[in-house]
Design a binder for these strands. Structure first.
Lengths: 254, 254
DNA sequence: GTGAATTTGAGAAAAGTTCACATAGTCAAT
DNA sequence: ATTGACTATGTGAACTTTTCTCAAATTCAC
């Protein structure tokens, strides 16, 4: 029967982005390469893989790596974002109610999230979908008008939606951070929404990759002194650092 | 220079799921196949394509077709669903407020939607994301608890969200349809949500592929007589058909 | 058991891919 | 105009993978 062999191949396809034909032939010495080929054909049919020269690429990895690459102009700093995301994950506690902002950094965080009992509220539909993989988390998607640029909902409906939700820890990614203007973003309704989150959450964790530093955009949603912690790669500008120390804002280096 | 050639190839990759090497070689008679290969390599680097035997598969299509295929057990009847979706699209009118249910049929419909000025409200985050490609449509995503099985939001928050929204035409896909029990689905909160949609929408269009016929699931959200039209492939069972005729429910064959 | 259907194997032919090196064109500075 | 660095492209042989077809083996239902 092929069922066991295919199950193993399927697991491999779920665990790595590429499975080579040779590797499979060695792994299953008692069937011919032709059979393995047919298995690969089968998985291609199933939409689990794509046949490429020398083996198969796992659909799972194709799609999740895509999520990063489509907004292709702005995919700078991916390793940095990943580092921030990892640090952020360390701050999670089982059973808590978490808010995840939208954006690529949060997308990364969502994909790296361990299986854990969490309630996660997010404004990013792509993030919500990513979170469906984590079987133990409860996913709460904020409703509202969807913004093309940042794949994020906002607007009055979104605000009303958030009114009834309690948040223990909110992870927020501003578009700019500056000692004078505080945390800023470029869009009015997004700003209102973030303001509300800041108000409601017990702890605010801000993820700041260096590209955001000393930038200031039209709308301020929060002063630096009101947050609980900053996660950053690189070093913060002197003035931000001083402000943080003065107001007991924890600084975490990724 | 290669820039023009690559631009053309890129457009092709955006317009169809597979571009063959031969096709490209014919299209560009003044460069060698090796050059085309290198172009393909380039697009693979860029994450726009995946090199496969004989050409390249377009990343765009891989990812959007994935959305259908992941709930892989239930991907039956895809051509049928596509036919239904096309018929449904014919019923749209510019400027209207539309509701799209979640599910694979609706996903298909979303991807086939023409560029048009519409306001679309949906319970499917994947559908909302797909709709981001249609630059002219306003996308409204219903918030709420996200259900893993059908990638759909529901729950009390979702109901409240829908309270303030006006809908001209709602496209709904039940899990079962039967003359006695009406339109049914398998999940309580999903049922409540669909009930609300049925109440609020001026016109209800139900998409019924044959796999749903004469099936009845635990929760009824609507009687057959309350809908405006049924789009179906194949033929409806006698009793459903009679009921439809009696209550002026239009029957559209895809 | 028997027959039908499915799964598998083997090997050669066909097709596609890679590689290394040669050639040609581009651009900027001299 | 010349040079040199650089990129883009072409060539053809060596190589690898894939496909194909048909026969053998296995499984399944009755």
């Amino acid at each position: 029967m092929h069922s066991e062999r295919r199950k193993i191949i399927k697991d491999m396809l779920h665990s790595k982005p590429f499975v080579s034909l040779n590797e499979l032939v060695e792994l299953f010495p008692d069937v011919s390469s032709m059979t393995i080929r047919r298995d690969i054909d089968y998985f291609e049919q199933q939409g689990e893989a794509i046949k490429v020269r020398g083996g198969a690429r796992s659909m799972k990895f194709i799609t999740t790596s895509m999520e990063e690459e489509f907004p292709s102009r702005m995919q700078k700093n991916i390793p940095a974002k990943e580092a921030l995301a990892k640090k952020a994950i360390e701050l999670l506690e089982t059973g808590r109610s978490i808010f995840l902002d939208s954006g690529t950094t949060m997308m990364k965080m969502a994909s790296l999230l361990p299986e854990d009992r969490l309630t996660i509220t997010t404004t990013g539909p792509n993030i919500a979908i990513e979170l469906l993989n984590k079987k133990q988390t409860l996913v709460n998607l904020v409703g509202g008008m969807l913004n093309r640029d940042n794949i994020s909902v906002s607007g009055t409906q979104a605000l009303r939606f958030l009114e009834d939700i309690n948040i223990d820890i909110a992870f927020i990614v501003p578009s700019g951070a500056d000692a004078q203007t505080g945390l800023t973003c470029g869009n009015y309704s997004e700003c209102e929404l973030k303001k509300m989150i800041v108000e409601k959450a017990r702890k605010i964790i801000v993820l700041l990759d260096t590209s955001k530093l000393d930038k200031s955009l039209p709308y301020t949603f929060c002063a630096l002194e009101n947050i609980s912690a900053i996660i950053t790669n690189g070093t913060l500008p002197r003035d931000i650092e001083e402000l943080a120390v003065k107001h007991d804002v924890q600084i975490i280096r990724a």
